[in-house]
């Protein structure tokens, strides 16, 4: 097997991880680079979602089905990471809700949701 094929196999064989990495970096970049408070929360949500996908794809077994007790099924996917991530999703929703609520309150008292303007108002001069 030549080097090109190895590379392709590694790339496509692990495609789920590539998706996770790309999403994670996209989300992380938005959080850091954008000054708009709502966009930051969108970025944060994408960042968290990438971790959910990571957990979910980790638990998948090739050819495995849902872990239901039945006669003709012998291979199951691991349900534990899927259950764990249900908890993490709930936590993620709570975080998003709280973040948005804070953004609304900030808009009410500062009149803006742009980071730069808020910081300018807090540290004049």
């Amino acid at each position: 097997m030549d080097a090109g094929n190895d590379w392709a196999a590694a790339f496509f064989g692990l495609y789920n991880y590539w998706i996770v990495v790309v999403l994670m970096m996209v989300g992380f970049y938005i959080v850091i680079a954008h000054g708009n408070l709502i966009k930051k929360i969108i970025g944060l949500t994408i960042f968290q979602t990438s971790v959910f996908i990571y957990y979910i794809s980790m638990g998948n077994v090739d050819g495995g089905t849902a872990p239901i007790l039945a006669d003709n099924i012998s291979q199951y996917s691991n349900p534990l990471p899927h259950v764990l991530i249900l908890t993490a999703i709930v936590v993620g929703i709570a975080t998003t809700a709280l973040g948005l609520a804070l953004a609304i309150r900030i808009k009410e008292s500062y009149g803006t949701i742009e980071e730069e303007i808020i910081q300018g108002m807090d540290n004049p001069g």
Partner: peptide
Amino acid sequence: RALWAAYQYLI
């Protein structure tokens, strides 16, 4: 400013 501090801490 407490709101802004809380938001930054949240992120």
